[in-house]
């Protein structure tokens, strides 16, 4: 069981010891919206005390790294110091994968992984606490909230964590030596329970599965939030779905089922090698489409078919993204 205040304290302490003027730290703090944390960009040592870590730290901070690195390159004004990012073990894998994909470099980057036993989305938290809340605090495994009607409610978080938290393929430290791990026990332990790991693809026939997938995806309004929040989608402003489609007239922005399928299929195949199944796509979707069903499945397929796991190594290339002369066909 994680003691979040201790983890927060230890992380702050560590960051203060390594911070140099010119460095930029990416971490979390409280937002003005009850039930969600917000990323924090720190450029002065005094601001380190604003860092708060708790089960609401759902955002995958790696998504900012490629953008900030690109700004560095584009502006011709590289950050004078190093980039320091505080991440959960699952998100550490996204950082490692980005290094493997050569979107960011290891030089000038320090990764600080903090121990975590599960994160919970704003929606789950509100369901747990029975509705809208004014504020929430965390103690051990409990969330203590104050409702809009000024009533106090308490609920246990166990069983309400994000689905990825019970998947040991996602919640595991990457294979990299030079990062710091902040934890009370100094060693990583998987806190989830594997039995919650069945996906619809495991239980339904191909036809029924396709039917289910069509139903889920039919809610899509093509807002692109899933793509924009994804650290594996690094084409950013140059995405094929955005460019004027004079050359490719069959890609449109329409919400007909075939166009929706096309968008999502293109995304599935493009990120299959480097998606670490962080689940941010599902959390960001304004329509509540359970996208992690697909991405967790792809993540699993990657291992089954190619023996590789995205986010494990910063130097090995993903099989789907590399080719060596003479290698055996898969």
């Amino acid at each position: 069981m994680i003691n979040w205040s201790k983890i927060t304290e230890a992380t702050r302490h560590y960051l203060k010891s390594i911070f140099q003027p010119g460095d930029v730290i990416l971490s979390y703090t409280e937002s003005n919206t009850p039930g969600i944390m917000t990323p924090l960009v720190i450029r002065e040592a005094e601001a380190i005390d604003k860092i708060i870590l708790n089960p609401l730290c759902t955002q995958n901070l790696s998504v900012y790294l490629s953008e900030f690195f690109q700004q560095d390159i584009q502006s011709g004004n590289p950050a004078t110091g190093k980039w320091v990012v505080t991440v959960k073990p699952c998100d550490a894998r996204s950082v490692i994968q980005m290094i493997s994909d050569e979107q960011i470099t290891k030089d000038n980057l320090e990764m600080v992984v903090f121990d975590c036993d599960g994160t919970v989305t704003t929606k789950s938290l509100k369901n747990l606490l029975g509705g809208e809340i004014r504020s929430v605090k965390f103690e051990d495994h409990q969330a203590k909230g104050e409702t809009l009607a000024n009533k106090e409610v308490t609920a246990d978080l166990v069983g309400s964590y994000q689905a990825k938290c019970s998947d040991s393929a996602i919640c595991s430290l990457p294979d990299m030596h030079d990062y710091s791990f902040i934890s009370e026990s100094n060693r990583f332990v998987f806190h989830g329970s594997e039995k919650e790991n069945t996906l619809i693809q495991d239980t339904l026939s191909r036809e029924d599965c396709f039917q289910r997938i069509s139903e889920e995806l039919s809610k899509c309004i093509r807002c692109n939030a899933c793509r924009n929040v994804c650290p594996a989608c690094f084409c950013s402003d140059r995405c094929v779905m955005d460019k004027p489609k004079l050359a490719i007239p069959y890609i449109t922005k329409e919400i007909t089922l075939d166009q929706i399928f096309q968008y999502h299929l293109i995304r599935f195949y493009h990120v299959a090698p480097n998606c670490t199944a962080c689940g941010e796509c599902e959390r960001a979707c304004p329509q509540g489409i359970p996208l992690s069903i697909f991405y967790r499945y792809l993540h699993r397929l990657n291992k089954q078919l190619f023996g590789t796991e995205s986010g494990s190594s910063d130097s090995d290339k993903q099989k789907l993204l590399s080719y060596r002369f003479g290698e055996d066909l898969v």
Partner: peptide, 24 residues
């Protein structure tokens, strides 16, 4: 700094009115 330009605010806003026009 922390905005990820997901577009969620504009798509869910009941008074956001902008649109794109495309030919097929």
């Amino acid at each position: 700094d922390v905005c990820i330009a997901c577009g969620g605010c504009t798509f869910d806003c009941p008074t956001c009115t902008c649109f794109d026009v495309r030919d097929v």
